[in-house]
Design a protein around this nucleic acid. Structure first.
Lengths: 234, 234
DNA sequence: ACAAAAGTGTTCAGTTTACACCCATGT
DNA sequence: ACATGGGTGTAAACTGAACACTTTTGT
């Protein structure tokens, strides 16, 4: 039955094994100086009370990324956010309902922009570092996505997606410290980001702080995109 | 029909959309100072004469990695080789036979160890840089896997998997130059690898060269694994 | 005046780059 | 002896890490 090769002889798939395909979104946010992830309480009897990622079956007329954006939209109302596919998870018994292969995505959202759609109690932001157990293999998926994010954030300035449009350098540093789980030197951190030259000085200051207010900056996404496009092109 | 969430309410998948799942292997080898990839000629009418990756449907009782190793074994006879999952490709019309979602893996093999199983003409090694067109979306898949390899090889010494057990530093350098598509300085290259301290001096020399013979080295995989385990543990 | 966090430069160490000559072998 | 690639060291430039005091605001 499986002697034919998917890339050569196979012209009909109807007689072949098929599995349900889902996507799972690891939706990261940043709040209270902590990296958070949006989870939903599972009510499958096997995982009663455990938290799970937000995911869904991929529809027949959807590609994977479309499905991931759909889930994100349905759960957070957000459309244009940073998202990256991480990898597939296809363990034999990862879903009690049968063979379900899932493709994991992570996305970076401004947590202030998220209005949890259903005002139910089932959706919650959790500090990544405090999560102990999860439903399915979601702890693995989260760990893999978190590692990927850590890796990404030191190579490219994607962290801005987790911050408000206007932010102080202290907030930016707190973000990096939270994601990478390290302490960074304030002067070196500032030096580095000013040198990268993607920060826009907004000539504004923090309000309502009971100490010297910090200056606010924005991220020059266009400038970053252009400079990065150049280096890809060649 | 799709109102239920895969991670919460769903207890039966039988009524849901399912797709065929395949894996595709990008099998890299190194020969004649070029990075090669093992391809098969597709005889699907849509891709007549085009080359495709080696892939197959994932079986019901196999996880993804098992399927990938099976394909590798069936096509090359090799068992213990370096392999890494890259990502899933799930475009709507990527396979003419229907919805097929594929998970891409790349592996690094010693090209000398590969005895092409079927001594047919359908399987061939191709220089990666010369490949123009491929069947399906395999050009995309190859490009993505190649980029991943380029990235990986500057972070971790996985390149050794493409070389024979005994190799000269020139061969090693040629490998890196081929993968990264750059010219490297010979002295700096040597300095760097000796400093990493994973090379074993075999006290042997090249034979049958018509110039000064190069010394041969081996890669100390155990030492690398141990030192790398440490840094993960903390 | 005090508390609390913002802002700012310099030095040192380690790493990366650039670069040219002699050596061992086969013909 | 010559052609071919093997093998080697040093100086300059750059990058990353360590480190302490002054400034601004609110109370």
């Amino acid at each position: 039955m499986y002697t034919k090769n998917i890339n050569t002889h196979l012209t009909e798939i109807k007689d072949y094994f098929k599995a349900a395909i889902s996507i799972d979104c690891v939706i990261f946010g940043f709040d209270e100086d902590e990296l958070k992830v949006l989870l939903i309480e599972s009510d499958l009897k096997e995982f009663k009370g455990k938290w799970s990622l937000l995911g869904d079956i991929v529809h027949p007329d959807e590609d994977l990324e479309t499905a991931a954006y759909r889930v994100l939209r349905e759960r957070t109302g957000l459309e244009d956010v940073y998202m990256e596919q991480v990898q597939a998870f296809g363990g034999l018994n990862r879903h009690p309902a049968g063979r379900v292969i899932t493709i994991a995505y992570y996305s970076l959202v401004n947590i202030q922009h998220v209005e949890l759609k259903t005002h139910s109690n089932e959706l919650h932001w959790h500090a990544v570092k405090d999560i102990k157990h999860m439903a399915f293999d979601h702890k693995d998926i989260l760990a893999t996505c978190y590692q990927r994010l850590q890796h990404k954030v030191i190579e490219q300035p994607v962290g801005f997606n987790l911050l408000p449009k206007k932010f102080s350098l202290r907030e930016l540093q707190n973000l990096y410290e939270a994601i990478l789980d390290v302490k960074l030197d304030r002067r070196n951190f500032r030096k580095k980001f000013f040198a990268m030259d993607y920060l826009i000085d907004l000539n504004e200051e923090e309000q309502e702080v009971r100490h010297r207010p910090a200056k606010l900056y924005g991220f020059n996404q266009d400038k970053y995109n252009q400079q990065h496009k150049k280096s890809l092109g060649f």
